[in-house]
Nucleic acid binder design. Structure first.
Lengths: 241, 241
DNA sequence: TGTACATCAGTGAACGCGCGTTCACTGATGTAC
DNA sequence: TGTACATCAGTGAACGCGCGTTCACTGATGTAC
């Protein structure tokens, strides 16, 4: 309950190490993050860091978890403040993008190419699932409170060639697993489209941050706003509670 | 016209260097690519590589250009063999994904997080534009040959809250620039949705390759097929010529 | 409350490694006459 | 066709740097009696 001075110092310095590491992430990205450079910046000797993190990879893991949690918290706060349904979705998207633009190197750390030689441990899974879980909950809520069209979501008809209305088998099964985990009661067809919306959201943000939109949708604000609206339609989210 | 032995040797060895560099890319990603290691693997002394590439960054640039060209060629071949319109789009998507799965580290090189400290020079711009240009051309062709619905593409209606039918201003202007460059005659509304489809395509592939789909749409084959069909609908592409 | 001991943070030196790049050089290939 | 010179590929040593991690150590903080 009461913390000893040692415990307080430990928490404090652990925080300072991560803070400095984040600064270096911004300077050179994950591959250039160096324990020695972090120690140097903090006026410590490099071996001292091993009192706090048993290896470089453990420091990386801590940064990854923090990044997922920071993003998750930002998104949750935005959704909590929104009216739900379609508004919740839009708020979530804007919060995710806003966080990404504010923390581009932490975004790259969790959504960019995997760091070579690093394998994310189990502990990162739960923080990574916060945004998907948030979206799932939002859909489930919207479905209950009338914020979503019933039946097959969206109104895009099967194309002229005549595609079967159902989902392909594996996708249906996967969607049901997802529904059971994070979106109870939401039909597989809605989940399938939500998966599209989800990958679309991060695809846009990655393209924006990684420079692929230069020469087309850059600056991306209007494009982003338009796209997330289209995704809301696709999923079947309607305005109002 | 006729090549000297020296010229032949130069072309050959330049190729071997890039080949070995690609192998090392697969082993450790771009940040771990090392001139010395490449030279070692080829039985050369590291300084000899400087006869072929003036610096490490120039080797990286060559790999990036090759990757864009390889991807572009694969996509173009697939579209060329398809019936056009919707089929062309689907073929393009499958070709891009197929290439990405076959060359995951080259994909990460061009669509992953930027390599720290590296700035892509102008020469990479044209190769990078091949896939977008291909899609643009495909849309223009489809529009001319009746492979696309006229008028506002797709059938998703404005959401219940009543969104204005038009595109936001900046997006409309950007879409017109894109149309002028790679999709002559294609309306801005179609371009805007094609931008969504394009970011969606690469967003899905990145999520698949970078491990974000584990636990949901994994394996991603059915999800991918479903999503690109939905995108075709969104853009207004119909089956047949 | 005071003392003896255990815990822990931080030091400094070292190990063993790898990197990109430069430079003066040797020897083979190509070119001009 | 043969010779003199220029071009270029590749060598080997060196410069100057950085890295992660280990280890024996000092000295401060915490704990049990």
């Amino acid at each position: 309950m009461t913390q000893t001075a040692r415990e307080r110092a430990r928490t404090q310095i652990t925080g300072e190490i991560k803070e400095e590491a984040r600064r270096q992430l911004a300077a050179g990205g994950a591959p250039r993050l160096s324990l020695r450079a972090v120690a140097r910046a903090l006026g410590m000797v490099s071996s001292a860091l091993y009192r706090y993190f048993p290896s470089r990879d453990d420091l990386l893991t801590a940064l990854i978890i923090d990044a997922y949690d920071s993003l998750g918290a930002a998104a949750e706060a935005a959704v909590g403040a929104a009216a739900g349904g379609r508004d919740g979705w839009l708020a979530c998207c804007h919060a995710v993008r806003g966080w990404a633009l504010a923390h581009p190197h932490e975004y790259a750390l969790i959504y960019g190419s995997p760091v070579p030689g690093y394998r994310a441990p189990q502990e990162t899974v739960a923080p990574a699932a916060r945004v998907p879980a948030l979206i799932g909950g939002l859909l489930a809520d919207a479905l209950q409170s009338g914020g979503m069209k019933r039946g097959r979501p969206g109104l895009v008809p099967p194309h002229a060639g005549g595609r079967a209305a159902g989902l392909p088998g594996a996708l249906r099964a996967q969607a049901e697993v997802v529904a059971a985990a994070i979106a109870p009661g939401v039909p597989a067809a809605v989940i399938a489209r939500a998966l599209i919306a989800w990958t679309q959201l991060f695809g846009m943000i990655s393209f924006e941050l990684f420079g692929q939109l230069v020469g087309s949708a850059d600056p991306a604000d209007d494009f982003f706003g338009y796209a997330i609206g289209e995704m809301a339609d696709l999923v079947g989210l309607v305005a109002g509670a």
